[in-house]
């Protein structure tokens, strides 16, 4: 195959591809500068090796100084583990809980769900349907009740059942709503008080179609719930979710899972290599088709 030359035009196109993947203009410009140096250093003339070079740089940005490692859930091996799900409205929290429950069950764990969204119309019923689908108990109060009280009950009930994992749903909220963020801190405090070391994970659910605002989401939710990982949903569409690069880079929060649809099986562990490749693959694949 013939490859195009790696010139100014190549980098311009790469810049556009990455920006259109929501990576964020600052991160993209830094990356392009570094890539230009790399190309010079290695004396690369055509694009045949660029796939590898770009991938490597992106993975480097993603992992920073950390070792590359698969980020698993940090669960309490003997006793109850609590996982708190947080995020803005409509990103996929409740659905992810359904999928995650199945995943944990498949690993032989006993799972309980807590219906901590007492606000949105139909939220409790939605979680109950997921509970029925994957056949796990759902602890709930009535609509409009105190979410912290539901979670408290969830913990007591999970403990008395000898369950392994409690998955806590919460209502979607925009991060600039101070009172709602305080409500979330309260939920977290209740969990901390009931079980030392809990919540074992606070997962921020992010919609892959989200643009630069996701960074603000990650910052503010971290302040109130000390986010330990991200679930990047709706990656089955055309959005690439590139903003998680900046989130990892600036806030050091790793992506743990990706959502790839609405079915119970549509949850996968995050694979950084596959992910970064997806950010720019369109560009290089197009070229290969054109040049072959």
């Amino acid at each position: 195959a013939k490859y195009r030359t790696v010139d100014e035009e190549f980098f311009e196109e790469l810049e556009e591809i990455l920006i259109s993947a929501d990576v964020g203009v600052n991160t993209v410009m830094e990356l392009i500068d570094e890539l230009k140096m790399e190309v010079k250093r290695q004396n690369i003339k055509d694009s045949s090796r660029m796939k590898e070079v770009i991938s490597q740089k992106l993975v480097e940005i993603y992992y920073g100084d950390d070792e590359e490692e698969i980020e698993e859930l940090q669960l309490n091996e003997d006793g109850l583990s609590v996982i708190l799900f947080v995020g803005v409205n409509g990103v996929g929290k409740t659905t992810t809980i359904g999928k995650m429950a199945q995943r944990l069950k498949d690993q032989g764990k006993n799972v309980v769900l807590a219906a901590g969204d007492t606000f949105r119309a139909g939220a409790i019923e939605q979680l109950e349907i997921w509970g029925q689908r994957v056949n796990v108990p759902v602890i709930k109060h009535s609509e409009g009740s105190d979410p912290a009280a539901v979670i408290y009950d969830g913990i007591q009930s999970a403990k008395s059942k000898g369950a392994d994992v409690l998955l806590c749903d919460t209502a979607g909220r925009l991060q600039n709503k101070v009172n709602l963020m305080n409500e979330l801190s309260k939920v977290k405090r209740v969990i901390e008080r009931e079980i030392p070391g809990a919540p074992h994970e606070s997962l921020l659910v992010l919609d892959a179609t989200t643009g630069q605002n996701a960074l603000s989401q990650a910052k503010t939710f971290s302040e109130s719930t000390n986010v330990s990982g991200i679930v990047l949903t709706k990656l089955d569409g055309t959005a690439k979710g590139g903003i998680v690069m900046a989130i990892r880079n600036e806030l050091d929060i790793p992506v743990k899972y990706v959502g790839l649809g609405e079915k119970v099986t549509d949850l996968q562990a995050f694979d950084a290599h596959a992910f970064v490749y997806g950010l720019f693959a369109d560009m290089l694949e197009e070229q290969e088709e054109q040049s072959s």
């Binding site: 920006i19 259109s20 993947a21 929501d22 803005v88 409509g90 919609d207 179609t209 989200t210 643009g211 630069q212 605002n213 996701a214 569409g237 055309t238 959005a239 690439k240 903003i243």
Partner: peptide
């Protein structure tokens, strides 16, 4: 459309 949508808004 969600106002937080990023670059993909045009495709959608």
């Amino acid at each position: 459309v969600d106002a937080m949508t990023g670059q993909d808004a045009v495709n959608v």
